[in-house]
């Protein structure tokens, strides 16, 4: 469904991505692994068309979704091709209520307010609270719910479990497993290797702006030297 080939990108004079290639088939989960500063978040921003607004630009390569090129499109057009981003740092709309956060950018489809409430009962309870009043875990649920309400074909998560309490983290992983079981394709960045290995169908290791290894979790488990060299675990 989503295909990234030889993507290169940077901010101003400094090039961050040199050669990133990855593919997310429909209904599958792909995880980007790699240490901090290796270009994982920049890869997601480049896919979403967010780089120009952040002082960056795509220098080369191809990004396609269902065969349509996404490069050069403004973010709202990229999103309409079926990509739903849950950004790093959650970024819920602070003065909008939980309900408004969910419905403001909703698009018709299988995900409705009721189904998101069933997935995250906590959001139903806090329906009228402003986004800024939520705990970190609740904000994360809201960010995921908000992306689901746009009814994407592919959910993209940037560090969705970062900085959360272990119990909340487990909740989020359980929800992601449920979404996968329902057939939603997911592209995610996460530092929790164990949880990622359990959920993902494919792993892509990013090192200094290059995708240096692609394979299944089993293949990575059988290659301790890769984990040693690129992930330091």
């Amino acid at each position: 469904m989503l295909r990234v080939q030889n993507l290169a990108a940077g901010y101003g004079q400094s090039q961050v991505l040199f050669n990133i290639s990855l593919a997310v088939p429909a209904g599958q989960v792909v995880a980007l692994l790699g240490r901090n500063g290796m270009g994982k978040t920049t890869t997601l921003r480049a896919i979403m068309g967010l780089l120009p607004a952040m002082g960056g630009q795509v220098l080369g390569g191809q990004v396609t979704c269902w065969g349509n090129s996404l490069l050069g499109l403004p973010p709202h057009r990229v999103a309409r091709h079926g990509l739903g981003l849950v950004p790093e740092g959650r970024q819920v709309f602070p003065t909008l209520s939980v309900r408004e956060n969910l419905t403001a950018t909703a698009r018709p489809g299988r995900w409705t307010l009721d189904r998101v409430h069933a997935l995250f009962p906590r959001l139903a309870e806090r329906s009228a609270s402003p986004g800024a009043r939520l705990s970190g875990g609740e904000q994360q649920m809201l960010a995921i719910g908000r992306a689901l309400m746009t009814n994407p074909d592919l959910l993209i998560l940037d560090e969705a479990t970062e900085g959360l309490a272990p119990l909340v983290r487990a909740d989020i992983w359980a929800v992601l497993a449920r979404l996968k079981a329902e057939g939603l394709a997911i592209l995610l960045i996460d530092k929790n290797l164990e949880a990622v290995m359990r959920l993902a169908d494919h792993l892509v290791i990013v090192e200094k702006g290059r995708s240096v290894w692609t394979g299944t979790p089993e293949a990575l488990a059988a290659a301790p030297e890769m984990r040693e060299a690129y992930l330091h675990v």
């Binding site: 967010l50 607004a53 952040m54 403004p74 973010p75 990229v78 999103a79 981003l85 909008l96 992306a147």
Partner: peptide, 13 residues
């Protein structure tokens, strides 16, 4: 939503 975070609103379509 756009007042709060225009880029986020765009990324949501």
């Amino acid at each position: 939503a756009a007042r709060e975070n225009p880029l986020r609103t765009q990324a949501l379509g």
